[in-house]
Amino acid sequence: MDFGAINPILLVASLMVSATPILLAAIGEMVVEKSGVLNLGVEGMMITGAVVGFVVALNSGSPMLGFAAAALAAAVLSLSFGILTQYLLSNQVATGLGLTLVGLGLSALIGKPYEGMKAPSLQDLHIPLLGDIPVIGPMFFQHDIMVYVSLALVAAVWATLKYTRFGLILRAVGESHDAAHALGYKVVRIRMMAIFFGGACSGLGGAYLSLVRVPQWTEGMTAGAGWIALAIVVFASWRAGRIVVGAYLFGGITVLQLNLQAAGAQVPVALLSASPYLITIIVLVTISARGMHGAPASLGRPFHASH
């Protein structure tokens, strides 16, 4: 393959932008899974964020307000999943799939009047000094604010999980809810908070699609991005730092194969598009073969205090 014709500066710059929606959704989902809950409804929450963010940004003229509304709307939607799975003890897999159905349907109904309109978008920042550095500047420091917000969010999640008491409790709840309960932690409340946070992040990811990446509202515009976010969490083996690697790898492979095509190389598209998933499986096998169970031990298991 001919890599020579591809400008690495532009490639990196482009993949940072195209990976941002899945990065946002994945970091949120990781927190949810760390607390022991598997929410398969990421796609539904993302697209709800996409439509609400678009509508609010269009009506208010402020993309930032759009992002805030998107986060809130998707988080509120995710609470329906939380109430069902945490209080009414429904199965998480089935409820997550239901959430996807609800999100796709609801977003299409909300978005009908807004099809074909143009919303205010975010301006690219040109970070002083850093942005002026040759090569590095255009690669990393000339993007819109949400690219940095997503990275800051990852850093914050990493630090919270690793260094704070709350992070410790969250992880304890995900590893063994019975033990955490015995220690007096409010398992359900903590999981609800994690679910709420996961919903908000998915909403931001969706809004990034409808306000920056595409920027327009069309029905079904997430086109499977939520499912990719789920895969990234697994790929990252539930570690915040690796979420960035995973998101940039998944996003990067699409960008790379399109760039290779644009540079005139013959590309085995089907193999390349399957490759991130194959790599994810290999990663999963490697970590489990090493005896480390990457997944939080209580992942997907219902919790009821009176066992």
Binding site: S18, P21, R213, V214, M221, A225, T254
Partner: peptide, 12 residues
């Protein structure tokens, strides 16, 4: 139809 991918293709 996949808006994000189409945008990526244009950008590439």
């Amino acid at each position: 139809f996949d808006p994000a991918k189409e945008a990526d293709a244009a950008r590439a």
